[in-house]
């Protein structure tokens, strides 16, 4: 699976977090999700993304790729990322 950030209408970033305007909604984006969106500005493989996020935020333990898959699903549901094969 590959992941890419979806452009938003407006974004305010303070420290490591953001608030974005997307799909008619104002959403708060956590530090992890903000990093994910930043690292996936272009299509990025899930394994590479997991490694880079673990580097930045620490290794959560367990199957990092599977954990990330769940995070990506949430962000996709919120309209913040898109996925492809």
């Amino acid at each position: 699976m590959r992941v890419r950030s979806v452009p938003v209408l407006d974004e305010v970033v303070r420290d490591d977090e953001a608030v974005v305007l997307v799909g008619g909604q104002v959403l708060r984006v956590s530090p992890l999700a903000h990093s994910l969106r930043t690292l996936a500005a272009d299509w990025t493989g899930l394994e590479e993304l997991a490694a880079r996020l673990a580097e930045r935020h620490g290794d959560p333990g367990g199957d990092v790729v599977e954990l990330l898959r769940a995070v990506v699903a949430d962000l996709q549901g919120a309209g913040l990322v898109e996925t492809g094969e």
Binding site: V12, R14, E17, A18, V19, V26, R28
Partner: peptide, 11 residues
């Protein structure tokens, strides 16, 4: 903080 205020004020 700014982000809290944004999410509280937008609605």
């Amino acid at each position: 903080d700014t982000l809290e205020a944004l999410t509280a004020l937008a609605p």
